[in-house]
Amino acid sequence: MFPYRLKELREEKGLTQEELALMLGLKRQSISNYENGGRQPDYNTLIKIADFFGVTVDYLVGHSDFRTREEEFKGRNFYEKYKLDEVIDDLMDSESKAILGNILINNVEPLIKNISGVLYQHLFGDNKKEILVLLKNLLESLNSYFNFLLKYSQRSAYFIALKSDYEPIDVFRWLLENHKYIKVVSDSRGNLYAIEKEIDDEIVRKIISEVYDVYFGLTDLLKQHGEILSSLRYIEEFYTKNLKENFSRILKLLEMPQDLIELIENDNNIENKVKEGDSNGSKDT
């Protein structure tokens, strides 16, 4: 792993071999030899390289998939804190755990922190009950969505069905293999399928049901998606309506000319901006 990780770290920083060698006080040929596996650095040089890139020696040589001790500690703590072992396969390899751990630390945990902050802020508002209910509904919709997606993704043919170059017949064939009804055998003409067990009508119906379950279970997923959008729309309407009404009241208190107040009250800028935001979001999506 060392040659691969050294090259990966160097390219992440946008450095040439010569530039890295200069910064480390080494020869360019040494960096080249390290990256092609021709030579291994001594321990002191390993420490120097690890310190330069801000990673551990264990990560550099492939003994760990966490770049820093802090990442490793946080990742392991996250697993224990949220009891992830209850929903994650024990056979997950260390690299996959590191990738997941980094996502949890850098994306999920900040999201939890921000959600908590928003909820805390709204505890002191005049309309706290209404907005907190709306935010609670959004969080429930999101939780329901991911709960459904977790169960949906555990179906045996799920990832096969996601492949762009697969047809339902490929999923059907894969399920027959997965249930050990057929196996692939190779001969001079290519791959052929040999029947391992007798396939009767009941088995065919069972396999078809699994294929149907994967492809048409998607409609239930879209229903969950619709509930999230509805929750977001209610929050959007709450802010749009109240902000616009309060802005009009402020203008009246300031004794603005009536024609200007009417112009602002009839202005659709807020709605248009919201719609533009939706449109841009759709394009990005």
Rank of each mutant, 00 (worst) to 15 (best):
D93F: 00
I47E: 08
V133I: 10
I49K: 00
L60W: 04
K13P: 04
N242H: 06
L132H: 07
F172D: 01
F73V: 10
V274P: 01
K206L: 12
D259S: 14
D259V: 11
L150H: 14
I270W: 00
H225R: 10
D85W: 04
G281N: 14
D165L: 07
E86H: 03
E265C: 00
S230Y: 11
N246Y: 00
Q29I: 07
Q258R: 12
M1P: 05
K197M: 05
F216L: 06
D187K: 08
L123G: 09
S248I: 12
E70I: 15
K7T: 08
Q29G: 06
L104R: 02
V87T: 13
I160A: 13
V57C: 12
Y158K: 05
S282M: 08
D65W: 10
L135G: 03
L132S: 09
K223E: 13
T68G: 11
F78P: 07
S186F: 07
L91N: 08
L142K: 04
S153E: 15
E35I: 03
L192F: 13
L218M: 13
M92T: 08
Y82Q: 08
E210H: 03
W174R: 03
H179L: 03
S164G: 13
Q258W: 02
L20N: 02
K7F: 05
S164T: 14
K27Q: 14
D165I: 13
R173F: 14
S116H: 12
D213S: 09
A157Y: 05
I88D: 15
N178D: 15
N114C: 06
D42N: 15
A161K: 02
L24F: 02
K83N: 15
F78K: 06
A50Y: 01
A21W: 12
G125Y: 07
N246R: 00
Y34C: 02
E210N: 06
E35C: 01
K27E: 14
L139W: 07
Y193L: 14
S282P: 04
F53R: 10
Y82S: 05
L6A: 06
D259C: 02
S144G: 12
Y4D: 11
L20D: 02
S141P: 04
I105Y: 03
P110L: 07
H122V: 10
K273M: 06
I103K: 11
L149G: 02
R28A: 13
I88T: 15
F53N: 07
I49R: 01
D267N: 12
V171T: 04
H63Y: 05
Y59G: 11
E276H: 07
G281E: 12
T219I: 09
E80I: 11
E177P: 03
Q40S: 13
D58L: 05
L222R: 06
N36K: 02
N242V: 00
Y212M: 11
T16W: 10
N127I: 03
K273N: 08
